[in-house]
């Protein structure tokens, strides 16, 4: 990104920050919503998910402290690609994964209501919350470090400000638009696609991050996002048929 001025580079980092902060809070709310569908008791699911997710965000930030700062852009790209892939298939992972685990374990157990039939699924779903929280938590210190390297502490503070703005916009967008207008399948595809867009921006402006397989994953994620949104109803019916049929 040496051909860009510092101001432009900071704007690029600001744009990435807005996108990833938006996606981070929407993932958290989607996870809470998926758990509400399976387990019921919406208030409890939201509360537990918020607490676990915030804790994982903190752990993700802590993990970054031990990372080599010189390779921040590479780490950011890998995180965005992993979040893009996870995000695209989030409802399928949670709902489909729960159904698969329960069916498999019920087939193995003689006592169908044994705790071992649902506990692995419960652990799996909450492990996903922790994983997405860890990855999202590492994003902000990476972006602040990238901003700081260009413009010192004031630039890092601006990145932090944009992170909060993105979070607030995402918290409004989820109940008002994403969940009602798009639904969970298309909404997850949109958010996964946004993470893929963030990865694309990193690839475009940080040449040192370019590897063939990363570019391929990024392009495939964007394509998958488009296809998922376009065929939302069919895919939703497929998922519903598998899980609740």
């Amino acid at each position: 990104m040496t051909w860009l001025s510092d101001k432009r580079r900071l704007q690029v980092i600001g744009l990435i920050t807005l996108i990833v902060a938006f996606c981070s809070i929407v993932y958290e709310l989607m996870l809470a919503q998926c758990l509400s569908i399976i387990l019921g008791n919406t208030v409890l699911r939201y509360s537990l998910t918020i607490g676990l997710y915030l804790f994982s965000l903190g752990m993700g930030a802590l993990a970054f402290a031990f990372w080599k700062k010189a390779k921040s852009s590479q780490l950011l790209l890998v995180i965005e690609l992993v979040l893009a892939v996870l995000g695209l298939c989030l409802p399928f992972l949670i709902l489909g994964g729960d159904q698969f685990l329960r069916q498999t374990l019920q087939g193995l157990m003689t006592n169908r209501s044994s705790v071992l039939t649902w506990l692995p699924s419960w652990v799996f779903m909450h492990a996903l919350i922790v994983l997405i929280g860890l990855l999202s938590g590492a994003e902000l210190p990476i972006l602040m470090e990238m901003g700081r390297s260009l413009g010192g502490d004031p630039a890092a503070h601006k990145v932090l400000a944009l992170d909060y703005v993105g979070t607030f916009v995402g918290a409004l967008a989820f109940p008002l638009f994403i969940f009602e207008q798009l639904g969970l399948v298309a909404g997850a595809a949109l958010v996964g696609g946004l993470n893929a867009c963030a990865a694309l921006v990193v690839l475009a402006f940080y040449p040192e991050t370019r590897r063939r397989h990363r570019v391929l994953v990024c392009v495939l994620s964007l394509a998958a996002s488009f296809l998922l949104i376009r065929n939302e109803e069919d895919l939703r019916n497929l998922l519903v048929g598998y899980v609740f049929g």
Binding site: I25, L29, A32, Q33, T42, V43, Y46, S47, I50, H157, L160, A161, D163, Y164, V165, T167, F168, G170, A171, L172, F174, P175, L176, F179
Partner: peptide, 22 residues
């Protein structure tokens, strides 16, 4: 309105935390 208020409240809380930091 559980979903709306759970989402809005955490979003507003985080945004206000950011304001406090600044």
């Amino acid at each position: 309105e559980v979903i709306w208020w759970e989402s809005f409240t955490i979003g507003a809380f985080i945004a206000a935390t950011g304001l406090g930091i600044f």
